[in-house]
């Protein structure tokens, strides 16, 4: 049980009296990648910084690889926790070159300068930024800076990686490439990772499991598939993607845009249409409420048109907060 890479037992953290995390329980198995998904201010960064050792818990414990490293009465300092971290704002030292930055953790492990640099050079080569080895952060682009930041984390040779929104400051076109690199390298190390992000697509795409955070509390934990298809409430559903709520005779149900399609036995009027590139979104005024439907290709109808539609799938919400939703098909069409 406690050979998990990370275990949080009832963790609570507060800033000057205001609670930032409340009673968080979480485990990350060895080699597992867990995403922390939540809006800004939900406590993602606080959680990572508490695991790293920059904040002390008010209550609860942090266990790393079977060792208790933090409790209210004290804990290990960050440098003795053996975790690696990639920061949102890169946190590169302006006075050090890329090479010396990546060599830094090895130096702290006690390696000689030349050894540490050789090791760092190997990492930079693997990340395909060896040609930037002698540049300082001010001479690097955002994507390059974050690669160096990733290199520094890799050099730590840790059993647990903490990624604190590493792509948040990157341009869209750089983001995908960097993320791919990050995932590949993490997989190579075989280490566990905790990946904080506010981007649902990123969280669902990278993680083995996803943790939804709201106002410092865990709302839901599950595989990406689970949190997407079976959200605990509307809030959780909207956090992980677009969703419409229809009110039928049996109560409220949740419908993802791709769970319905145009054509079929029901009719509705189109309130609005958006072209999204690979697909188009139609907002339908149905008798049960407004429904967003996603269809591949360019728009085939205009606002005001009356169209036919079919419900393929839905997820029943109980209305009562805290109760789990359940799969339902009572609204589903005969098809």
């Amino acid at each position: 049980m406690s050979t998990d890479a990370l275990e949080l037992r009832g963790l609570s953290v507060s800033y000057g009296g205001a609670p930032a995390l409340t009673d968080v329980h979480l485990t990350v198995a060895a080699g597992e990648m867990v995403a922390l998904l939540g809006p800004s201010g939900s406590g993602k960064s606080t959680l990572l910084h508490t695991v790293a050792g920059f904040h002390a818990p008010r209550a609860g414990e942090v266990w790393l690889g079977g060792q208790r490293v933090a409790a209210p009465e004290g804990g290990e300092p960050p440098e003795r926790r053996g975790v690696a971290m990639v920061f949102q704002n890169y946190a590169l030292w302006p006075h050090l070159t890329a090479l010396d930055t990546v060599a830094y953790p090895a130096r702290r492990r006690g390696l000689r300068r030349s050894q540490a640099r050789a090791e760092a050079m190997a990492i930079l080569e693997r990340l395909q930024v060896a040609h930037l080895a002698h540049r300082r952060p001010s001479e690097l682009s955002g994507g390059e800076q974050q690669r160096v930041g990733l290199g520094r984390a890799l050099a730590r040779q840790a059993a647990l990686y903490l990624f604190d929104e590493p792509t948040a400051h990157l341009d869209t076109h750089v983001r995908g490439v960097f993320l791919e690199e990050l995932l590949t390298r993490r997989r190579e190390t075989g280490a566990a990772a905790l990946y904080a992000t506010h981007d649902a697509e990123e969280a669902l795409g990278v993680a083995d499991r996803v943790v939804l955070l709201a106002a410092g509390r865990v709302v839901q934990v599950g595989t990406p598939e689970e949190v997407y298809r079976r959200p605990v409430d509307v809030w959780a559903a909207r956090l992980t993607g677009s969703a419409s709520v229809l009110t039928g005779p049996a109560g409220e149900v949740l419908v993802r845009p791709e769970w319905a399609r145009l054509g079929g036995d029901r009719t509705a009027q189109i309130a609005d249409v958006w072209f999204r590139g690979p697909h188009s979104d139609y907002l339908l005024n149905t008798p049960d409420g407004r429904l967003l439907v996603r269809e591949p290709g360019s728009p085939r109808h205009r606002a005001g048109d009356t169209v036919a539609w079919t419900l393929l799938e839905s997820w029943a919400l109980d209305g009562a907060p805290g109760r789990r939703g359940q799969e339902s098909s009572n609204l589903a069409g005969p098809e």
Binding site: P77, P78, W93, R108, R156
Partner: peptide, 23 residues
């Protein structure tokens, strides 16, 4: 965060002062 990065990279408080803060 620059100092935290150093702590996370394995440097103790004194080493952080010497290698990061003072430079």
């Amino acid at each position: 965060s620059l100092e935290r990065a150093a702590r996370a990279a394995g440097a103790g408080p004194v080493t952080v002062l010497r290698t990061i803060t003072v430079p």
